[in-house]
Design a protein around this nucleic acid. Structure first.
Length: 527
RNA sequence: GGGCCGCUAGCUCAGCUGGUAGAGCAGCAGACUCUUAAUCUGCGGGUCAAAGGUUCGAUCCCUUUGCGGCUCACCA
């Protein structure tokens, strides 16, 4: 790989090569990601998942055998009731329980953690992400890690020394690298008292002031604290790559201590990369129900097709923060994607460097890398699609009839796009952007002279709309205004009032053509 | 207190291993008697935060400073 080629490489490819370089030639590369499902798994968390997915794909394209694991840290403690969860009073009662023992007040699953998990697991396949899920609660509770916990206990002093390097308050002498959920209360308000040097651990339940000795091979109570748990899993799974947010990847952060702790477990830290957070733009407004402004993958998938969701992340360096837009920027995002697509299919000429870059972005944006489209999507700007949809009150099939020259594969993509467009129009589009054609019940109170003008326009529509271009037909519009002694602006206002009950609307001639003479006449002839 | 990131046209940002910068939007001008961020065309010299340094040459490397943001030092 020459330096010149390297310069143009996509970050996922650069990362894949770095992994191969640093970890050597291996039979299997393990790439990992994970999070505590202690609340809605939002789009910022998704950034980590998609980052791993892209690197995994880049590795596989290099002929590597890759395992992509996703760890749900669902044996974590429920510390805080998130603002956006229903029935907070009920949830309040479960603080300090493991999140798998907290009820799911959203009704999605049989426990709180699982509810947050399924939301993500249901959506990830839609964007082409298929990790192997690992459930830490199940692992811990079935004692899979008993040996690792014993090791951690035996390396107590070394671990403490590593953690103390960055702490202001050193860990106490009686600190143990293990957390215990009480078998009396299920809560973690406990304190380890003694370890027998093997598998016997004695703790005290601080709520009840009761003591118990458990066997870490047979009781489900113990887990490792985060800064020990993370490196333990690296060693256990043989992780070669795992990215992290900037909270982890800072001096003194958990990656820093984990890369020392992992050596105690006889392994080396994975290659990592830092990703920045995601901001939201244009969300809130109409739908800010709880004040807690969260957007998860399903919120984003509602207004962007899967390949565009991927595109947002593929096209941005992970280390750069960016905003996901729900406002009018949505239009631009669609245009940007379509532009990349046009470059990919050679419909747009750009220099080699740019073309190469966009080509790779397009490929990686596709949900299934074995099914990359062989033709571009139907060329219609997103805003036009929005107008067509509104003309037909959201009836996708009617819109497709108008776009009859679209191929089957284009229609398929158009359907997805239209669903997104409709959702966007209903939830986020600004008021000025939205309209609906007037029905029989919403007549505009027109004067007699206005009615005459409308009737004349109806005649022109009937005779000429279908046969003339947009530009040609605007002449008839001007003529109608002139014939009836109306100023243009007044006449335009009148027509919009009649058609959509608003003073302004889409550019009139084009709008009339988009509606089609049949629909237009149906409305005009009421006057 | 430590660390990290950013500071480029009015706005949002590209510019990724050095050869004095570019897209979109806004704006301006014109085209058709016209209207929403929804017509087309033309128009982009901004001390690349500041000062030093390295260099034949720096927006891009090094140092320092300023401003903004994030993060760790509690837990995960």
């Amino acid at each position: 790989m020459s330096e010149k080629e390297n310069q143009n490489m996509h970050w996922a490819d650069i990362m894949a090569e770095k992994i191969i370089r640093e970890k050597g030639d291996k039979e299997l590369y393990t790439c990992a990601s994970g999070i505590t499902p202690s609340g809605t798994v939002h789009i910022g968390n998704f950034r980590e998942i998609i980052t791993v997915e892209l690197v995994v794909r880049a590795l596989r394209e290099r002929g590597k055998n890759v395992r992509f694991i996703y760890s749900w840290d669902d044996y974590d403690v429920f510390r805080k009731v998130p603002k956006n969860m229903p029935d907070p009073e009920l949830l309040e009662k479960y603080l300090r329980y493991p999140i798998t023992l907290v009820p799911d007040t959203t009704g999605r699953a049989d426990n709180y953690a699982r509810g947050n998990e399924v939301a993500v697991e249901d959506d990830l396949p839609k964007v082409g992400v298929f990790p192997e899920y690992i459930y830490q609660a199940a692992r811990y509770r079935s004692n899979v890690y008993a040996e690792e916990i014993r090791k951690a206990l035996s390396m107590r002093d070394e671990i403490r020394a590593i953690l103390n390097e960055f702490r202001t308050e050193p860990l106490a002498d009686d600190w143990w690298p293990v957390a215990v959920f009480s078998s009396f209360t299920d809560k973690d308000n406990t304190k380890v008292i003694a370890w027998d040097g093997a598998y016997g651990l004695t703790y005290r339940d601080l709520d009840l002031d009761k003591e118990e000795t458990i066997d870490i091979r047979t009781t489900p109570n113990t887990k490792l604290p985060w800064r020990v748990d993370w490196p333990m899993r690296w060693a256990y799974e043989g992780v070669d790559f795992e990215p992290g947010g900037k909270d982890h990847l800072t001096e003194g952060g958990s990656y820093d201590t984990a890369k020392s702790v992992v050596r105690l477990f006889g392994a080396e830290a994975p290659v990592t990369m830092r990703y920045d957070f995601i901001r939201l733009k244009g969300k809130g407004g109409k739908i800010s129900s709880s004040g807690g402004e969260v957007a998860d993958l399903s919120d984003v998938l509602e207004i962007y097709p899967p390949e565009i969701v991927r595109y947002l992340f593929v096209g941005t360096r992970p280390s750069a923060e960016f905003a996901i837009s729900f406002d009018l920027d949505v239009l631009k995002i669609y245009e940007d994607y379509d532009n990349t697509e046009r470059i990919y299919f050679g419909l747009l000429n750009v220099n080699d460097k740019k073309r190469e870059k966009e080509r790779r972005i397009y490929e990686l944006s596709q949900v299934d890398d074995r099914k990359i489209p062989t033709e571009p999507g139907y060329q219609i700007p997103f805003r036009h699609l929005c107008n067509y949809l509104q003309i037909y009150s959201g009836d996708q099939e009617k819109v497709l009839e108008r776009l009859s020259d679209a191929t089957e594969s284009q229609k398929e993509r158009l359907r997805v796009r239209m669903s997104c467009a409709w959702a966007w129009l209903e939830k986020y589009a600004p008021e000025e952007f939205c309209f609906s054609l007037s029905g029989p019940d919403s007549l505009y109170d027109a004067s007699e002279s206005e009615r005459a003008a409308i009737r004349e326009l109806a005649g022109f529509v009937s005779d000429h709309l279908d046969g003339s271009t947009e530009k040609e037909f605007s002449e008839y519009i001007y003529k109608t205004a002139a014939d009836n002694g109306m100023e243009n602006p007044d006449f335009f206002r009148l027509v919009y009032m009649v058609l959509i009950g608003k003073e302004k609307g889409p550019k009139l001639a084009g709008f009339l053509k988009a509606c089609g003479s049949e629909k237009v006449l149906e409305i005009l002839r009421r006057y």
